[in-house]
């Protein structure tokens, strides 16, 4: 199924999905229980070098968007909010 064929998720649902993935897959294994949507996930240690690629795999496989090499940087993948913005931008 291509991205355009998918039922568009609402923005709040999309953010929930992103937050849940980061919470369960990246933060909890490191013992980090809380983070805000604005917080820099790299500075707080939620996302490390491997975590970036687990996140990119999640975005590509679950969110059905392609993330270019240039987009894998500390600004674009900084927080839940910027990651959500990336997905919305890529789906347009």
């Amino acid at each position: 199924m291509s991205a355009t064929e998918q039922t568009p998720a609402t923005q709040s649902t999309l953010k929930d999905q992103i937050r849940e993935f980061i919470q369960v897959q990246l933060a909890e294994p490191k013992g980090i229980t809380t983070f805000t949507d604005e917080e820099s996930l790299m500075e707080t240690g939620v996302i490390d070098s491997l975590g970036i690629f687990r996140l990119v795999s999640f975005l590509e496989e679950e969110m059905r968007v392609r993330v270019s090499d240039e987009e894998i940087n500390a600004e674009t993948l900084k927080s839940v909010n910027t990651i959500e913005e990336l997905v919305i931008r890529k789906r347009k």
Partner: peptide, 9 residues
């Protein structure tokens, strides 16, 4: 700061 992305690439 993009060295990490370059190296991983």
């Amino acid at each position: 700061g993009s060295g990490q992305a370059i190296f991983t690439h």
